[in-house]
Design a protein around this nucleic acid. Structure first.
Lengths: 210, 210
DNA sequence: ATATAAAAGTTGCACTTGCAACTTTTGTTG
DNA sequence: CAACAAAAGTTGCAAGTGCAACTTTTATAT
């Protein structure tokens, strides 16, 4: 996980705070972060703590869109996650940096080398985020659980070029990620195993067909 | 559909061509655009014509990820669509502008007001694209066709605040968009109609519950 | 106006999936 | 290490969905 301030000294980071008129807000567990940022074109960075972006469905269910941790960047105007119609809630003591979007894209700032590092870091985080989202879309587009799993394997395989895929999360989280029922996913994994396509050992999945 | 050159005069556009050393390539129907841009960090803009971004699945199926039309922007390093492992194919006579990504983010260019307009336009296109993708993820995450449809309606309703939703595409394209079988989607639309939730007249859907 | 193609609309059926209700295993905490 | 919680693993069943194979309607072209 890279940070928007990677490669910058303490002093340079403070200069950026000044340059962009960064506002620092602290929230307690359960606090809503959104009233402070909604409306304005503002970019948020979590400096410590964690929060979740969620929204209420038409039927009243709360859907967690994303979890924000240290160094996460969010905001509706910086191509990260659609914050509109969402609530952002602190999950613990959390500090958030808020930056006016217009100051961020003010070209005058680009004459400062340390600002360019910061801006490129931000762009990089956005880029990574978007690539991840596109990967997930490829999986979600598949109609059947088997195809979603195979697409997931394919994407992970290309990243490491290794038949052994180590799940970065629990199996139940994989079910959430590919958006299918946990038991049904498990059943399908079992079938893939029985048919000799894969082998599973805890969080390690081996692709027998590669 | 906005263009990266919106708000710029012919002369200013030519200055941008010079500034960024824009390369202009022409392709015939069926030509692969990708060999020219792959590897390098390059941003593409379709100046006229159309193309499609597709990839070959593990089972040999070709999946069309996206259609590019006039003014579409693409490229793996500008947060648009993950072009890696994909093929870009011209669907007709097509002209593409290719820009070196590093020149695009060169801060020296930002001293030119016309470049800032261009850059902001690009950022805006990226932003819109990402919001659209996030919308789609919200729909694709739903497990049942009914929930996908209702989520789609919800999103469209919030955009226009009108019970009448005009589909911007054919019903079969809606099925592709929410990634379900066309007939199955139709059946579900019929059920929603029979249960009084919606009314359908061609491409106009009226939400009776709003 | 007629031919042709494309989209809309319909239906039956087999298969897939979500869901609930478990048991078993693994991990965590005082 | 006992107690508890969380995750993994299993199963039956009802409901949902994909798919194929249609018919009907609408759009497009000559």
């Amino acid at each position: 996980m890279s940070s928007a301030f990677d490669g910058l000294s303490r002093l340079q980071i403070e200069k950026i705070y000044d340059l962009l008129d960064v506002h620092i807000y602290k929230f307690n567990k359960g606090d809503a972060i959104f009233p402070t940022i909604k409306g304005g074109n503002i970019v948020g960075i979590i400096s410590y703590g964690s929060a979740s972006i969620s929204y209420i469905e038409y039927n009243g269910n709360e859907i967690v869109l994303e979890n924000l941790n240290k160094d996460s960047v969010f905001g509706s105007n910086i191509s990260l996650i659609s914050v509109d119609n969402c609530e952002i809630t602190a999950k613990e003591n959390t500090e958030v940096l808020l930056i006016d979007y217009n100051k961020l894209i003010n070209p005058r700032n680009l004459k400062y080398p340390y600002f360019n590092i910061f801006f490129n870091n931000l762009f990089d985080i956005i880029n990574t985020k978007f690539k991840e989202t596109n990967e997930r879309v490829r999986i979600l587009e598949k109609k059947q659980i088997r195809d979603k799993l195979l697409e997931y394997f394919e994407i992970e395989y290309k990243k490491v070029l290794n038949r052994n895929i180590n799940l970065p999360f629990a199996l139940k989280d994989l079910a959430d990620y590919i958006s299918v029922n946990r038991s049904a996913m498990f059943r399908e994994l079992k079938h893939l195993k029985e048919e000799g396509f894969i082998d599973i050992n805890g969080k390690r999945i081996t692709l027998q067909y590669k």
